Amino acid sequence: MKHILKQLNQKPIAYYPVYREITGSTTAGILLSQLMYWFSKKDKIFKTDKEIQEETLLSEKELRNAKKLIKKLDFITVSREGLPAKTFYEIDWEKMYSSLAQWSKLEKPKGQNTTSQKDKTLHDQRAKHSIYTENTTENTTESITPSSIISFYRTNISSKNQDIQEPSSFNQINLRKDEFEKIMLGLKNYAKYISSTGKKPEALFFFVRNSIYLDYQEEQVAVKGKNEAIVPVDLVGKRFIVDGEDIEFKEDGYLKIEKDWKVTNAADVEKLVNLVRGA
């Protein structure tokens, strides 16, 4: 019984349906998903057919047909190099984003199908349903896209590739289309927090995947030291009655008006901020 359970509990592969849309084939979508996983680590990789079959469980025929479709993608190069010859796969990220931008602009007028001349055989009108699509309408947030979210992180939090993990982060963001505003707001508040505290930033991939952005929908108390708190800007100067005491928030803590006593202990300030916000 244990042997059976171990066999069933094999390491899964990440399959993104969008890659099926891009390639026009489920098996090619599986192959592209696995390749993208490896591309997130290195732009050019060497993989034998046997290794890919072991990782994806595609049959020899399925893999052969999937590779034919992968070769038609303009952002991936499949080549045979060396003696004995080995199969290499290489991605061009700029071409990939350029292609995705083209796919996102595909439209389907009433009464007819519209296809991209360049990628006609790959995805026809299905591509307009790709989760990479970043076009907005009057009912969505006009300026927030996965690319703008990544750009904000790169500019305001960290420009290190290992922190951005762009391909993986792009996918994670796209899985949360209804959360773009929350992700961006979370990043803005997180950027302030990181800037004030000097703490090491969380990688964007994990920040999104683990929904950490939900913890930063309000600007946080920046803790620079035990007695060095920085109060969120939106609370500075505001007064509240807490447990019968009249308190006013200052930039570095809060003042108990009647006692003329200011509290700057970071932990206490944070507790009061959470209290008045109903956290």
Results as ranks from 00 to 15, higher is better:
A14E: 09
D178A: 14
W38A: 09
V223K: 01
M96W: 11
Y254M: 01
T23G: 13
T133H: 06
S211E: 15
N171Q: 13
V233E: 00
A101D: 14
E142C: 03
S168G: 02
K2H: 07
V236R: 00
A101M: 09
Y190P: 02
A14M: 12
N113S: 09
S211A: 10
E142Q: 14
E107M: 05
S79H: 06
D178N: 12
K67Y: 04
T115R: 15
D74H: 11
S196R: 00
Q125P: 08
I4M: 07
R176M: 14
Q34F: 11
K2L: 08
G111N: 15
L63S: 11
L122K: 15
S147L: 04
K160A: 12
D268V: 00
I144R: 10
Q102Y: 06
E219D: 14
W38R: 15
K6M: 07
I194T: 14
E228G: 00
E54Y: 09
D43I: 05
Y89M: 11
G24V: 08
L275Y: 07
G82F: 09
L35G: 05
L58D: 12
D119Y: 12
T136C: 09
Y37L: 13
I13G: 05
D243M: 04
K192F: 01
Y213P: 02
L58E: 02
E134K: 13
F206Q: 14
K259H: 05
T27P: 06
K238M: 08
I131H: 02
K250W: 00
G225V: 06
T141A: 10
T115P: 04
Q7W: 10
E142P: 12
H123D: 05
K42I: 04
Y216K: 09
L106W: 00
R126M: 10
Y97M: 12
K47W: 13
E228F: 03
I257D: 06
L255R: 01
I45L: 13
T87F: 07
N227G: 07
K192S: 06
